[in-house]
């Protein structure tokens, strides 16, 4: 067995802890593959699945609790910051808020299985002034389900994963380079996806000053208030002339408009 695998086994649980913590705090380092490998190693008796479970749940709870406290302290501004740094442009605050509004703290039970939602749900719970104890209970159960699913998959497919590990073992430090390249490629793809979205939006975001000038000149395009219903309940005001759009009213509102009509959209 090479030094590489020895290192993984020797520092396995702290590595899993670090990986889970970094992912939950927002770093683009997926932890699920690590949990699956840890599960496979535990099936071979080379790691303790109990230690992996406990370390992962604790790491997840610490990271989520930090976000929960930040949400409680800074409110919805934290969500906007998260959206700015997130590599998942589809995980917009509006969708997350709508989901959280629908399911409440129960959404934490499945949050970790939904890309983007996992990171935004804890500060959202904090901003919504949910009870700390209830948050920790639901978040802890959610973390348990997520970690256990990775470990169970690893244990179930440990023979196949052992083959992959052996192949990596033969590659030695090349394996590290390949994995690092794969992660870099994943980040690059996400980044390109985000750039692509911005291009589709023409990246020409409109400043509030320009919009005010357009309104004053009477040349403002259609303005759409795309905040979630929860956000509109918190602040029942809108930019003058803005139309409020819910998912189910979108069709009727925009059916008669030409596709080249300029539309300015705002969220919270």
């Amino acid at each position: 067995m090479t030094q590489l695998i020895h290192s993984v086994i020797r520092y396995g649980v702290p590595l899993v802890f670090l990986n889970v913590f970094l992912e939950q705090i927002g770093a683009p380092v997926p932890a699920l593959p690590t949990l699956i490998v840890a599960g496979a190693l535990s099936a071979d008796g080379r790691m303790s699945s109990t230690h992996v479970l406990v370390a992962s749940i604790v790491a997840s709870l610490i990271a989520d609790w930090i976000w929960f406290l930040l949400g409680r302290r800074h409110g919805y501004r934290v969500l906007r910051t998260l959206c700015r740094i997130s590599l998942s442009p589809d995980s917009c605050v509006r969708e997350t808020e709508a989901r959280f509004e629908r399911w409440g703290l129960k959404s934490l039970l499945i949050a970790k299985f939904i890309p983007g939602f996992s990171l935004v749900a804890p500060p959202l719970a904090g901003a919504a002034r949910q009870s700390t104890i209830a948050f920790l209970i639901y978040d802890g159960i959610g973390a348990l389900l997520w970690v256990a699913s990775g470990v169970v998959v690893g244990r179930a497919f440990h023979h196949a994963i052992a083959d992959v590990l052996n192949a990596l073992e033969n590659l030695g430090w090349w394996a590290v380079a390949i994995i690092a390249s794969a992660i870099a490629l994943l980040i690059a793809l996400k980044w390109m996806q985000r750039r692509s979205l911005y291009r589709r939006l023409r990246m020409a975001r409109v400043s509030v000053h320009d919009l005010k000038r357009m309104l004053d000149e009477g040349s403002a395009p259609m303005i759409v208030d795309a905040r979630s219903s929860a956000a509109r309940k918190r602040d029942a005001r809108r930019i003058p002339t803005a139309v409020v759009v819910e998912g189910d009213t979108l069709q009727e509102r925009f059916a008669a408009l030409p596709p080249n009509r300029e539309i300015i959209v705002y969220c919270t």
Binding site: R205, A236, G247, T268
Partner: peptide, 30 residues
């Protein structure tokens, strides 16, 4: 959603509603 429905000139407001409020610009009640 608007882009998916074929609208080609959809532009986001920089800073969102909070930036509008912070700038002290007028608002309407919903």
């Amino acid at each position: 959603m608007l882009i998916d429905r074929g609208f080609t000139l959809v532009r986001p407001l920089k800073g969102g509603f909070e930036a509008w409020i912070e700038a002290g610009y007028p608002v309407e009640n919903l």
